[in-house]
């Protein structure tokens, strides 16, 4: 019986959290998969936020009335899959060194996060 419940819980948790830290109401142990997914997520968020710290990025944010805090909050609301997509997109931008590259990458991220109000890429937000 217990095993069955654990099985159902595991399936439930996997379905809805995709291996994120598990809410204690369901199971309070952290799975290995959950730890790995969580660390990968944190690394992806950090990558985006580091980009936002650059001078060129700060200008774009200021021009659009967006603070790095807004970006951080939006990132926090993305599912793992959405964040992964965003990170892949951002990776494809040639941000390395060039100011234009940084500006384009930041604009792309803001559009994807729907912070410019231009599109509705992630309707869940």
């Amino acid at each position: 019986m217990k095993k069955q419940i654990t099985g159902v819980l595991t399936a439930f948790v996997m379905l809805f959290t995709q291996g994120l830290f598990v809410p204690a109401a369901q199971a309070a142990m952290v799975t290995t998969d959950g730890m790995v997914a969580n660390e990968q997520r944190a690394a992806m968020e950090q990558k985006v936020m580091r980009l936002m710290e650059q001078d060129a990025a700060a200008k774009v944010l200021a021009q659009n009335g967006v603070t790095p805090d807004d970006v951080q909050k939006r990132l926090g609301r993305l599912s793992n899959q959405e964040l992964q997509k965003l990170a892949t997109k951002a990776d494809q931008m040639p941000a390395g060194g060039s100011v234009l590259g940084v500006v384009l990458a930041v604009i792309l991220i803001l559009v994807l996060l729907d912070l410019l109000g231009a599109t509705d890429v992630f309707p869940a937000i």
Binding site: F21, V22, P23, A24, A25, A28, V30
Partner: peptide, 11 residues
Amino acid sequence: DSDNIKDSVAD
């Protein structure tokens, strides 16, 4: 900052 661990502490 971990929500999971916050819940664990309460639990």
